[in-house]
């Protein structure tokens, strides 16, 4: 099953609505609570990253019998140094975003810790694509 959700940059009121909907689907198909939680943590973090950093993005969810694959593709500033961004505490969030309590770093490492497979590609000035997979078993 495929679903596409659109995310607007800067719209913090609706940040997290995609992960909430994905959570509901995973509960319906009987995925174990641990894996639901893990997926929600990873997706929520990645979704908020789009809201905090990018102009807009699409989240494509591919739900299969044994795994879920989520691709978050945004149009935004991109990440100049992915390896550095993967370090705990590193953040590119603007002061404005930090004042709202977001963008304190830890986003990408947290996504990594909560996904079985994570692939990040980025082009400065164009955008970032995050592909994460979680298996149900």
């Amino acid at each position: 099953m495929n679903f596409v959700y659109h995310v607007e940059g800067g719209d913090f009121t609706n940040a997290g609505s995609t992960s909430s909907q994905v959570k509901r689907m995973l509960k319906k198909i009987g995925v174990s609570p641990e894996i639901v939680k893990k997926t929600v943590v990873a997706l929520y973090e990645a979704e908020v990253n789009i809201v905090a950093h990018a102009y807009r993005g699409d989240i494509t969810v591919d739900l299969e019998e044994d795994h879920i694959k989520i691709v978050l593709a945004d149009e935004g500033p991109g990440i100049p140094d992915i390896d550095r961004a993967m370090q705990k505490g590193y953040s590119t969030a603007s002061q404005k975003v930090r004042e709202m309590g977001f963008g304190a770093g830890m986003g990408l490492p947290n996504i990594k810790n909560n996904s079985d497979s994570l692939n990040i590609t980025s082009e400065v000035g164009k955008g970032t694509t995050i592909e994460l997979i979680n298996y149900f078993q």
């Binding site: 099953m1 509901r24 689907m25 509960k27 319906k28 198909i29 009987g30 995925v31 609570p33 739900l63 019998e65 044994d66 149900f136």
Partner: peptide
């Protein structure tokens, strides 16, 4: 946990139902 939302014990069947 005893999820009320689970639509079938079998994941594939649950997906079809969902």
């Amino acid at each position: 946990p005893r999820s009320m939302d689970k639509m079938d014990d079998n994941v594939a069947a649950a997906m079809q139902k969902m």
